Computed example of a mutant assay.
Amino acid sequence: MGASQLSPDMDARAREFESVFLQRLVSVGQKTVADAIGVSESTVSRWKEGEIERWCKVIAHLGLQLVPDSAVLVNAEYLRSLETLAELGLKAEKKRPGPLGWD
């Protein structure tokens, strides 16, 4: 197998994806995965010898993400908009006068 041609950042992401993938594989179980996709458990086990790493690099190179079902993904522009609104709200709250004393 040749050396990785991914940038250091993409290579780090691929390693992170591989870690998530392997943790999830342990959690769900190789046999469960194998049965679900119609292959032998040994086939799934052999993937750990480089196949999972290779596909995680492909995912990183394509600019995709590997996340659990429970993750909520939003695009960066939307997140920046929310951050701006939160910042404006905090600034407005700081300028708000204190209690009037009759509450």
Score class of each variant (00 low, 15 high):
G50C: 11
L100A: 12
S70L: 06
V20H: 10
L85Q: 08
L85G: 05
S7E: 14
L85Y: 10
R13V: 09
I52Y: 05
Q65E: 15
V33L: 07
Q5E: 15
V28R: 08
L100P: 02
E83T: 12
A12H: 05
L25K: 08
K94I: 00
K48R: 14
G63F: 11
L90R: 15
A92C: 05
E77H: 12
G63A: 11
S70C: 04
I52W: 11
Q23G: 05
S81T: 12
L64S: 04
L25S: 03
I59E: 02
W55C: 03
L79V: 12
G38P: 07
V20T: 08
L100T: 14
S19R: 12
G101I: 09
S19M: 02
G89Y: 07
V44K: 01
A60M: 01
E51I: 11
E41G: 01
L66D: 08
E53A: 13
E93I: 02
D9G: 11
S40E: 05
A86E: 14
R46M: 10
D35W: 00
D11G: 02
W55H: 07
E93V: 09
F17S: 02
P68H: 11
P8E: 03
A71R: 13
G63E: 11
L66F: 15
V33A: 00
G98V: 03
A60C: 02
S7G: 12
G50W: 03
L22M: 13
A36P: 01
V28H: 03
E93L: 14
D69K: 06
G50T: 08
D9E: 15
V67R: 12
Y78H: 13
L64K: 13
F21W: 08
L66S: 09
W55Q: 12
M10R: 14
D11K: 06
K95C: 10
Q30A: 14
S27P: 00
Q5S: 13
G89Q: 10
V28L: 06
D69E: 10
H61C: 07
L66E: 05
I37F: 00
V26S: 03
L88H: 08
S7P: 05
D9H: 07
A12S: 07
S70V: 06
G50L: 06
S81D: 04
A86D: 13
S70T: 11
P68W: 11
V44I: 15
Q65K: 13
Q23D: 05
C56M: 14
E18R: 07
A14R: 06
P8H: 03
S40P: 04
Y78E: 14
R54C: 04
A60Q: 01
K91L: 11
K31V: 02
R13K: 15
R80D: 15
A14W: 06
L88R: 13
E83Q: 15
E41Q: 13
G38I: 01
P68C: 03
G89M: 10
I37Q: 00
R54E: 09
F21E: 01
G63W: 15
